[in-house]
Amino acid sequence: MNTRRNLLLGAGAAALGLLTWRAAPPRSAATATGDGDALLPNTTVLAHDGRAYRFYDDLVRDKVVAINMMYVQCSGVCPAMTANLRRVQQMLGQRLGRDVYMYSITLRPEQDRPQSLAAYAGLYRIEPDSGWLFLTGEPAELLRLRRQIGFFDPDPLVDGDTASHTGAVRIGNDRFRRWTMAPALAEPGQIVATLNHVDDRMLHTAHRAAT
């Protein structure tokens, strides 16, 4: 299954609506306020808890984080991804919200405002204040943020189509400026193992016994 080929062949009617290539703004210098060496910008985001945050300073700085993309109306991979990440949340237990933080950013900020994100979180039984936030914001700002995080396809045809969006989770430990990724549909134990890899508090990365 090749995303670009499917788009060109017209697989997925929703995809065609976004076929018009639009000039993508180049990824620009980090804009974290006052902290020149931050890798991620201080975009203002609105969370499903109704509060506004500065993305870098409030949500990422010095934390171990897992960031993915979704949107409420997605009938493709998002339900499976969100369900999978819910299993990750269960495996993390108390660590989520204390040592590790999860953020899901919408690809459709025009439609997904905080209330609809709150309803979406409720659907998946994600408790408030769990350490997992669903985020929206101003569309152009969120597009810039998404690119900075590295969620883009070099092919503008594929990149412009939200229905064919990334299946990656950006995982990192900001205190050590150490970043990698895990597939959002990987076994949840594997996603936890990648979090354990970057989390300096974890001695063992394995979520299950070595083979």
């Binding site: 974290a32 060496d37 890798l39 883009f152």
Partner: peptide, 13 residues
């Protein structure tokens, strides 16, 4: 359209 997507490189000071 000309505006090439700049090859990405992370930027911070």
């Amino acid at each position: 359209g000309g505006a090439a997507l700049a090859a990405p490189l992370i930027l911070g000071a």
